[in-house]
Design a protein around this nucleic acid. Structure first.
Length: 112
DNA sequence: ACCATGACGCTAC
DNA sequence: AGTAGCGCCATGG
């Protein structure tokens, strides 16, 4: 069951389009796990590399990167986002880069 | 079983 | 812009 939750989370994150970002809480909600943002972070940490989950497109609800500024992971995330054309202002992404999925289409793709 | 620890988030100061 | 408290709960010691 927790394994299934991880699957739901990975699937949801895979739907985030390049150049867009979503928050941990948003992913949790869309994955059918409201209020469980922490689980999203855990799931991303455990994500199998073969799934190629775009973990770097997930950040905090205040639109700042999900890691301590200066940490190797934060630098990597910044680089990957910039490579997709995401605009970063002082360690924050602009509101325009937030992912706003069409719910009907999302439900269709997630196949619940 | 108990306790501490997080890739979090929201409300209230 | 910051801090504090609380809710959340899987994982590991």
């Amino acid at each position: 069951m927790t394994a299934e939750n991880y699957q739901k989370i990975w699937q949801t994150v895979l739907l985030i389009p390049a150049g867009k970002v979503a928050s941990y809480g948003q992913v949790a909600d869309l994955a059918g796990l409201p209020g469980r943002a922490r689980l999203v972070g855990k799931a991303l940490g455990y994500a199998p590399t073969e799934l190629a989950v775009p973990w770097y497109r997930v950040l905090r609800s205040d639109r700042s990167l999900g890691f301590a500024p200066g940490s190797a992971t934060a630098l990597e995330q910044r680089q990957l986002l910039l490579a997709e054309g995401v605009v970063l202002k002082h360690n924050r992404v602009s509101k325009a880069t937030l992912w706003q999925p069409d719910l009907a289409e999302l439900l269709f793709k997630l196949q619940y």
